[in-house]
Design a binder for these strands. Sequence first.
DNA 1: GATGAATGAGACTTCATTCAT
DNA 2: AATGAATGAAGTCTCATTCAT
Lengths: 200, 200, 200, 200
Amino acid sequence: MGLRGRKKGSNGEESKVLLLNIAAEEFAQKGYYETKVSTIVKKAKLTQPTFYLYFQSKEAIFQELVNSFRAELFNFVEKSRLESGLEIGSLAEKIKIGLTAIFSFFVENPNITKIGFFLTPQAEEVKVNLATQITDNLTKEVEDGYFQTNVDLRTVAESLVGIMERLTVTKLFTGIKEPESLADDIVNLLLFGISSTTNE
Amino acid sequence: MGLRGRKKGSNGEESKVLLLNIAAEEFAQKGYYETKVSTIVKKAKLTQPTFYLYFQSKEAIFQELVNSFRAELFNFVEKSRLESGLEIGSLAEKIKIGLTAIFSFFVENPNITKIGFFLTPQAEEVKVNLATQITDNLTKEVEDGYFQTNVDLRTVAESLVGIMERLTVTKLFTGIKEPESLADDIVNLLLFGISSTTNE
Amino acid sequence: MGLRGRKKGSNGEESKVLLLNIAAEEFAQKGYYETKVSTIVKKAKLTQPTFYLYFQSKEAIFQELVNSFRAELFNFVEKSRLESGLEIGSLAEKIKIGLTAIFSFFVENPNITKIGFFLTPQAEEVKVNLATQITDNLTKEVEDGYFQTNVDLRTVAESLVGIMERLTVTKLFTGIKEPESLADDIVNLLLFGISSTTNE
Amino acid sequence: MGLRGRKKGSNGEESKVLLLNIAAEEFAQKGYYETKVSTIVKKAKLTQPTFYLYFQSKEAIFQELVNSFRAELFNFVEKSRLESGLEIGSLAEKIKIGLTAIFSFFVENPNITKIGFFLTPQAEEVKVNLATQITDNLTKEVEDGYFQTNVDLRTVAESLVGIMERLTVTKLFTGIKEPESLADDIVNLLLFGISSTTNE
DNA sequence: GATGAATGAGACTTCATTCAT
DNA sequence: AATGAATGAAGTCTCATTCAT
């Protein structure tokens, strides 16, 4: 084959990654339906058949981005948990670490976050999973006697997810708050409510 | 028959309402893009030209539903506020009444709620407005000395919106909770957090 | 029936004439295809079914206007010919009288002229007839020895039609020239050409 | 044919040209509105999406034909002028050369001529331009003392345009006369009128 | 004489996707 | 690995025309 088929040193993997990145941006910006395959390839300076060399369909590339969101988020959060003094710390601390990790991932990957956490119908599933996990954690803490409450824990977990969702849009993506400070606020609110009189 | 200006009950108005209802259901279920005008009219046992007799475009009927969501929600909440002993009551009570009103409207109008609060890009605006209003109310309470807090009120407001959003999907639309009980939970959580040890 | 069915004293004939006039204006302005039945009836403050009470189709009302152009033009020209000292006069005089009559009709009936002389495919036929008639007249004059020429008379006739066509658009409808003065110019040009050094 | 720097013979350009030719024929025959994109592509043995690969819209392909009429006519006339002994010759000769060139272009390109000189609303503009140009030429001749007249030159020019218009339809497109002989007739008529007693 | 409501038919256009090279 | 060219399938919308009253 030699150099004949090559163009500007690009190769297959590069093209695929390029397409994924552009697609992520487009989907994040315009949503699934307003994103056209023709636009993606144009921005990548490629052609439509090339697109289908790497992805079975428009749906498929979208799904790939959704999956990468899920996988990378999981990895990132896992890694953060391990790095941060492991399983010790108070409930507040633990929640804070988790939230900070998630938010950090979100700000660093806004496009796939928009796709995987907001755009896709599977976002619902992601959120349900997240809520379940949170519920489990809370439940364990209660069982272990670390704190007690008269609020339904599932509701708390889902509320937390809702808070994350909304503040990600209004505070994080707008650059108004940083992951850590946002996590702080949320933990504070969640633990003590607005009637709190604690000092920081 | 008399009343020359109005043609009440004439078939035309009926057809329009019919189309609006079916469209609301379709949009709520499948989203804007997967909803086809052809499907709407088929379900209404009408034809496509008839659709365009009442709506300028698919976009237009969608917008009409969004607008009706906004207007009706506003009316409903306003009415609820007036009916409920007017401006009196503690902060908790006031929030609870407001939330209950909103949730009641949501359960009673799930389709346009999905459309106007979740589907449309304008939902963002709705939520921002809602958060602003809540922020204003909270701020006034603080200024009036009814309570004090060290949490940023805008963040609280936005969190509340996020909680509403999420619990509407998971608890309200699923039938797991009723408006009032849901409002109760939220107020509880928001005021005292999960560390609360208060008894009801 | 009494007065019950009546509306503002309008009756059938009136409505028909109204529709014809509005249609003439619309067709003249926008052409056949850009003229919509819905627009015509709206401007007439009537409804579409009413339109079909008087005309079998859009095509039909258009045809009616074309016919009325042909008939009225014929009448008008005939009348002019009779009124103007009948068959006497030089060739120049005769042509001038004929042209003035036609141009007068055109300025007074711009809408149906546009329709019947420019818009409709049948305009071709009208022009061919006109050219034939003119050719006949010229031929007779030559045969009667009133003048001689070495130009093909059919070509002259068709040229005259072309001149009329164009000057109607550029001079008559724009108000730059009056029928008589326009007829004058044309006769002058046609008889003597631009090399003419005759004085009026 | 020339090489023109284009992808000669490539299938894409061929398809575009094919579509243009068929479209020209269709438009010329049936007019803008009665010409359907579906018919054009069927005759080209292509499909509708292919049409939109080369033209943005039905309107656009029509405009492309109009533009090509204007450009090619201009080129052709320009070329003819240069080829024909340049600026010398009597007025009659000059007009004759110009008319012959135009008529030659017309017979050789009947379809785009019908479109650009008769069908499109822009034809009016073309004719006005033509008349202006002719007026300028005539005026110069008069100023240079080559001939004198008492007829308004703009009117003469517009008459000439009218004559061209009509004779193109009746003599040229029907094959009754050739460009040169037609130009001859017109010049004769225009210069001397029907009273001419000159011998050929 | 008139109309509110409805429709048959069809036009233009778009887009994801594939064929052949 | 890549592309020029093409298309199947479908969707939105328009308009002249009619039905039932």
